[in-house]
Design a protein around this nucleic acid. Structure first.
Lengths: 163, 163
DNA sequence: CTCTGTGCAAACTGTTTGCAGAACG
DNA sequence: CGTTCTGCAAACAGTTTGCACAGAG
């Protein structure tokens, strides 16, 4: 059990104050929408697209426009509260970043399914690269592409998209 | 000096025969366009977008439509001759893959400039992941994002896109 | 009060698709 | 010769933008 409801509540309090500080520092306004969106994001334990987030919020009392979502995702990413991924060609995927499981992605080239894995050596590579090239690295993104186990065993995947 | 003109010619011969075999195996046609496009790609020593490739070819005697480029890039990627990257939100970037420098990418979050680096440990992570999750991995993509040296020193980069 | 942020819809842009003709096998 | 590939243009989808109004400071 990685998290409990109590943990989640506590985490959201921390995330909220990070946003507070960020907005103050950047002289941006603390609008209700920003906090509603952030709260919704931190209730999702997976990757999501803008449209999914939009639908989720539309089905609750909080309605925000897509434009507001796009606008604020940029802020959240810059504040380090959200990570943005560009897996395929289509829509970007997001996920919450604060106090979340550190992981990378494995994508099946056949069915497009996204798996997660974690290898601490990536941090070592990151440190080496920072020193070698004088970069201040704030985020890493490692993706492996290949055929998943289901494909290797049966020659096809569950949720195949083409062919 | 990593390559000479003679090397390039030889490499293209090898790449051509890989494409030959791939097309034969998949029962696809060996059209002139496919070879023209592949040749152009292997004359580019950098990342490029579809539109750049289109313009380059338009300025030569070889004219191919964008649709043909998109169609064939998919084939080249599947044949392992080209690597496709999705760095930002916008257009995909490609680069030739066969017998080319193995490297990963470092992107400045301020100016968007793409740097390259290479760390052999990534291959170890790849092998571990394959074994652990039963995947047959065919490609990896590692990206670091952060502030480049120019930014760290002067607080801004050369080719800044936005404020 | 001022001026940023929001909602809405239209505009934009990279990519995909449909169709008629070209050309590979 | 049949069928796939190409070129063109229209369609599509995710994202961005312009504008009038709401609401944070």
């Amino acid at each position: 059990m990685l998290e409990t409801k109590a943990d989640n509540k506590e985490i959201f309090e921390q995330v909220k104050s990070i946003l507070d500080n960020y907005l103050k520092e950047k002289k941006l306004r603390r609008t209700l929408e920003r906090y509603y969106v952030l709260k919704e994001i931190y209730s999702i334990n997976d990757h999501f697209e803008i449209d999914e987030l939009y639908e989720r919020m539309k089905n609750k009392k909080y309605r925000v426009s897509r434009a507001t979502l796009y606008n604020n995702m940029e802020i959240f990413v810059d504040a380090g509260l959200v990570i943005k991924h560009q897996f395929g060609t289509h829509s970007a995927q997001y996920e919450r970043a604060y106090n979340y499981r550190q992981h990378d992605h494995l994508i099946c080239s056949d069915c497009g399914k996204v798996f997660e894995f974690c290898d601490p050596r990536i941090i070592q590579i990151q440190k080496t690269t920072e020193n070698l090239l004088g970069f201040h690295i704030t985020q890493h993104s490692l993706q492996f592409t290949g055929k998943c186990q289901a494909f290797a065993q049966s020659g096809k995947c569950e949720n195949k998209k083409t062919n």
